[in-house]
Design a binder for these strands. Structure first.
Lengths: 157, 157
DNA sequence: GGTTGATTGTTTCTACGGTTAACAATATAG
DNA sequence: CTATATTGTTAACCGTAGAAACAATCAACC
């Protein structure tokens, strides 16, 4: 409808005038993501697992002999990006690449004993980090948030 | 057909077995952010404004003669990071750096007529992108989501 | 059974967003 | 007037990621 002339006003800045940005989901999503991501890294320390490495390890622990391609699909990233992640985990001794009898292209990923232990410890740390960071949200709110985020994620599939 | 060899999809991983990751706010936040960010860029096109540039332009339009330092603070990034953003906007003819009488260190940022027009157009595009992308969420849900994300943002301040 | 097409892991290149540390110019406080 | 702080800026660097290419391997199929 009547969209006023482009360069109109803009003179005085009333508080709710910035509302544009503040009301956008994307903007708030990004700002929140940056904060949570930074705190995650702080929580896991200088040489701790990066978020994406932690995520990969989680899936490897839970899905024995998962393939890198499959893992990439589940994480929503490219196959090529998984090489560095796997290298990282292998260098730490948390994961090994195992040849798969029957298909010599594939290398199944398996968590070592150390990998499983490290995962469980990291998981504790991550849970503590989230509990601390999200202490302003009630459990119900946190659950709601996760549910809504999943709805958005779903679109990407 | 499916040989039941080692590559077989992980010895029946029950769905709730991955729950670790799926229940973490950070993981879901990141996945959702990636999707929204990618769609934002797609919506604004190859040579369109990047998300951060759009955000900066929005604040410049709404807050006349804002300072780069102030803008950085409001966007939650470093001063140094704003130089490239401002360069971008200036190269497009959307913003000019103006000397401020009284303090020769500062250069106030002002949106040009073209900048204001471009912002309004981009805003329409962005709103359409969000409406499309978030069509699975009811308006109430979207509002709830923004509210919860703001609560997280608040922590960072 | 040999050709065609797809898949897997990988490397290399590129791009982007962002931080840190330094710096010169300028302003402010004591 | 000196010491300190602030502003915009540059340069070096890191982390994440995608795209494109490639060799090895597998599957299809005629």
């Amino acid at each position: 409808m009547a969209h006023a002339t482009a360069a109109r006003q803009g003179a005085q800045t009333s508080p709710e005038d910035h509302a544009d940005l503040e009301d956008l989901v994307g903007y708030n999503l990004k700002r929140a993501y940056v904060i949570v991501d930074a705190d995650f890294r702080r929580a896991l320390g200088e040489d701790g697992l990066a978020p994406r490495v932690f995520s990969a390890l989680s899936l490897i622990v839970h899905i024995p002999d998962i393939t890198q391609s499959d893992l990439a699909r589940r994480l929503g990233i490219e196959r090529s990006g998984l090489v560095a992640i796997t290298d990282d985990l292998e260098a730490r001794g948390f994961v090994i690449r195992q040849p798969v009898p029957g298909d010599r292209r594939v290398q199944a990923l398996a968590a070592t004993k150390a990998g499983k232990a490290a995962y469980l410890e990291a998981l504790q740390t991550v849970r503590a980090h989230e509990a601390r960071l999200l202490s302003d949200l009630s459990p119900a709110e946190a659950e709601t948030l996760v549910g809504l985020l999943r709805k958005i994620r779903q679109i990407g599939d």
